[in-house]
Simulated assay, not measured.
Amino acid sequence: MSTTSTISKKLAVSDPDQISENYAKKKKMTVPLFTGRKGGDPLVCLTAYTAHVARLVDEQADMILVGDSLGMVIHGMPNTLGVTMEHMIMHGQAVMRGAEKALVVVDMPFGSFEESPEVAFRNASRIIKETGCTAVKLEGGAEMAGTIEYLSTRGIPVMAHIGLMPQQMNTAGGFKAVREQDQFDAVVSDAKAVEAAGAFSVVVEGVAVRLANEVTNAVSIPTIGIGASVECDGQILVFEDMVGLFPRVPTFVKRYGNMEDMMRDAITRYSEEVRKRAFPTDEHTYKAKESS
């Protein structure tokens, strides 16, 4: 059975043949194709951290982000600050084993790019070499423009990240959305600065709708919203948030499934059957064979 038909069955798709046909027609996403979608059909973006989830997401997504949010949703960290290069590379490698056509972008973790453009290049090139991904993402606006330019002019595509920046939670006093109007001009300036520096796209996180619209209209590169506006050029959510696998649900997340309840039910039923000696049954065991 093909990978696409297997995925279709797992997702309970009503017409697997149509899904397979659409997937076969889907082009391999590149940075120029991604940037060319500015103002066009909305870009579908999701995170993934494992090969299997990457295969599922790849069927629909234009971009897969191996985000440093993996520290929280996979490794149980309180925030993203403890994520290391080794974490990002390991999960990036897993995602690249599952993704075929989506553009794969890997987050640069806290402390891996801020020191200097040279350090950022060393770490970004390591991520690309060791994972096979196409691009990296880093947080920061005008203050990181020099680093973005250094990377992009040396063959490393960069997706920027402005607005609410989780890696700056300590200086911001937590995860705080940008809603005060006196903050708007600075965020718009950040967007223009990262575009001028060579970023091929920019994530706009946790900002008021009006600000997200202003940013989208101010730059010629795609804006990818998360907690922003439907008018952004694309949207991204953390996969575990979207399918109901993470208990804390941010305001901007819509749950499209409740995998936690489904998994809890499966675990409960399995436990009950084991305790009753109802599992395994004959169909789940091996029969002895006569020696030849």
Rank of each mutant, 00 (worst) to 15 (best):
F113Q: 09
F113L: 13
F113N: 11
F113E: 07
F113W: 12
F113R: 09
E114S: 10
E114V: 12
E114W: 13
E115D: 15
E115V: 13
E115F: 14
S116G: 09
S116H: 07
S116N: 01
S116Y: 00
S116W: 00
P117M: 12
P117N: 11
P117F: 07
P117K: 09
E118R: 10
E118D: 06
E118H: 01
E118P: 02
E118A: 12
E118T: 01
E118N: 00
V119G: 00
V119Y: 02
V119C: 01
V119L: 15
V119N: 02
A120L: 00
A120P: 00
A120T: 02
A120C: 01
F121V: 00
F121K: 06
F121T: 00
F121I: 03
R122S: 15
R122M: 14
R122Q: 15
R122K: 15
A124E: 04
A124Y: 02
A124K: 04
S125W: 05
S125L: 01
S125Q: 06
S125F: 06
R126S: 05
R126D: 03
I127H: 05
I127T: 01
I127W: 03
I127E: 03
I128E: 04
I128G: 00
I128D: 03
I128A: 06
I128F: 04
K129Q: 13
K129G: 03
K129P: 02
K129C: 00
E130W: 09
E130T: 10
E130P: 10
E130S: 06
E130K: 15
T131H: 02
T131A: 02
T131W: 05
G132H: 08
G132L: 05
G132A: 08
G132Y: 07
C133R: 01
C133I: 11
C133K: 01
C133N: 07
T134K: 13
T134A: 15
T134V: 14
A135I: 06
A135P: 01
A135W: 08
V136F: 12
V136S: 11
V136C: 12
V136P: 06
V136W: 09
K137F: 04
K137E: 03
K137V: 08
K137T: 11
K137S: 09
L138P: 09
E139Y: 10
E139M: 15
E139Q: 14
E139T: 14
E139D: 10
E139L: 14
G140V: 04
G140R: 06
G140K: 07
G140C: 11
G141V: 08
G141S: 12
G141F: 03
G141N: 07
G141Q: 05
A142K: 15
A142T: 15
A142V: 15
M144T: 13
M144K: 13
M144Y: 08
M144W: 07
A145V: 11
A145N: 08
A145I: 10
A145S: 14
A145C: 14
G146F: 08
G146D: 14
